[in-house]
Nucleic acid binder design. Structure first.
Length: 451
DNA sequence: TTGAGTAAACATT
DNA sequence: AATGTTTACTCAA
């Protein structure tokens, strides 16, 4: 719930669990808060009952507020006396597994793609606070058979081999027949793009926007980072970072679409954000908390709404890729905004989102709270108001003021398209909204909502 | 019954 | 092999 909620934050904080051999005989099943900070514990001999938020701490301790799994491990070993001697593969399996498990499980943590380094993803704290509990990831809750099947991974049944072998759908997902075949799958059906989309989109990381704005770019050498940040800052205020790769761009896009409200609003506020974040990490934190604090809902998501300006149809058919990547992409990354844009937009990502219902629609502003974490239909709710003008405004900089006419042809994919894009946004939203309004139920978004 | 924690299967990189 | 995700299970509240 309330993201900022102390409680949830605290609870979510528990990401590290001790491995079996480590667990004290009487180790409480659940931790009690607050606990002495393990790292402060002077007696390694006395294993921390449970690391309250070690993972969180680890991440927070990072200047960039993000760490890779390996770094988290490292942090543990280095910082927590108990783990000092548990860094080897033998004794670390358990707790590492737990860490991974928790990172994945708790909405408190969000994963940010880290491609540039070819390394594992960054793990960050969910600016919204996430949930301490299991992430409200798509669940079987309202899952019907089909979705279950779809969702079911082709994973071999475990202890019940007797179960249905492999749902036909599974096969389907693996071998898309048509261009859209893959979309039929739910997040569960993992195929590259989809998986990508989903993982990024996972409710857990409901604040994709934040993620995005926070800078998806992988950690790099300071110098590099600085350079990039500088550039990003100057180039675009709201583009938290420049996606180094297409893939990342994908995620970015995804994030935008999905969390559009946020992203948008982040845009509006981002300008401010970026201003303060050009330097380094520090600000990020601030930004994230304040910006996304649902409580402060003031960020009227209203403004944000369009992110995915494209109507379904447009998305599916358009050969003039309207850069839903929106502003972000458009102005941020020249590289991305080009070919990749096309690819991204016209291709799977956007559509898959549609299919899953994940994207396109911004969350309603009013519910940043608990429900906000859920990729439920609420996301589909039409943005209260659109920011056609506001959009530009929020984006607000010269760059955005599109050239009077982005006359077709060889325009640079970047800025020029924006104009058209914006236009499209408006009507598309209408389309989308109306679609939802009248045919809403018919739509099968396949996303598994909520709590 | 539920949530937390652990183990492990499976998938992906 | 490292990462990530998900499911199954156990146990305490």
């Amino acid at each position: 719930m309330d993201p900022g909620n102390e409680n949830s934050a605290t609870q979510a904080a528990v990401i590290v669990h001790l491995d079996p051999d480590f667990a004290p005989q009487s180790r409480p099943r659940s931790c009690t808060w607050p606990l002495p900070r393990p790292e402060l514990a002077s007696q390694p001999s006395e294993p921390p009952e449970v690391e309250p938020g070690l993972g969180e701490k680890a991440i927070e301790s990072a200047p960039e507020k993000r760490l890779t799994l390996a770094q988290i491990y490292e942090w543990m070993v280095r910082t927590v006396p108990y783990f000092k001697d548990k860094g080897d593969s033998n004794s670390s399996a358990g707790w590492k597994n737990s860490i991974r498990h928790n990172l994945s499980l708790h909405s408190k943590f969000i994963k940010v793609h880290n491609e540039a380094t070819g390394k594992s993803s960054w793990w960050m704290l969910n600016p919204e606070g996430g949930k301490s509990g299991k992430a409200p990831r798509r669940r079987a809750a309202s899952m019907d058979n089909s979705s279950k099947l779809l969702r079911g991974r082709s994973r071999a049944p475990k202890k019940k081999p007797a179960v249905l072998p492999a749902p036909p759908e599974a096969a389907t997902s693996k071998s898309p027949v048509g261009p859209f075949a893959k979309w039929s799958g739910s997040p569960g059906s993992r195929n590259r793009e989809e998986a990508e989309v989903w993982t990024t989109f996972r409710p857990r990381s409901s604040s994709n926007a934040s993620t995005v704005s926070t800078r998806l770019s992988p950690m790099r050498p300071e110098s590099e980072v600085l350079a990039e940040e500088e550039m990003a800052a100057s180039v675009s205020s709201y583009a938290g970072g420049v996606p180094p790769t297409v893939k990342e761009g994908l995620e970015l896009l995804d994030g935008l679409n999905l969390a559009s409200p946020h992203s948008l609003l982040s845009q509006s506020s981002l300008s401010g954000f970026s201003l303060q974040h050009p330097g380094l990490p520090g600000p990020l934190h601030t930004y994230s908390t304040s910006l996304f604090s649902p409580a402060e809902g003031s960020l009227s998501a209203g403004e944000g709404c369009f992110s995915s300006s494209q109507s379904l149809e447009a998305l599916l058919t358009s050969d003039t890729p309207p850069p839903p990547a929106d502003v972000l992409m458009t102005q941020v990354d020249p590289i991305l905004s080009q070919a990749p844009t096309l690819l991204l937009l016209g291709g799977v990502p956007s559509s898959s989102k549609l299919a899953t219902g994940g994207g396109l629609y911004p969350k309603p502003p009013e519910a940043p709270g608990p429900s906000s974490l859920v990729p439920s239909l609420s996301m589909l709710a039409p943005p209260p108001l659109m920011a056609d003008a506001p959009l530009a405004k929020s984006l607000g900089d010269p760059m955005l003021t599109p050239p009077t006419d982005a006359t077709s042809q060889d325009k640079m994919p970047q800025d020029l398209d924006l104009d058209m894009y914006l236009e499209n946004l408006e009507c598309d939203m209408d389309n989308i909204i109306s679609d939802l309004m009248d045919g809403g139920e018919g739509l099968d978004f396949n996303f598994e909502p909520d709590p």
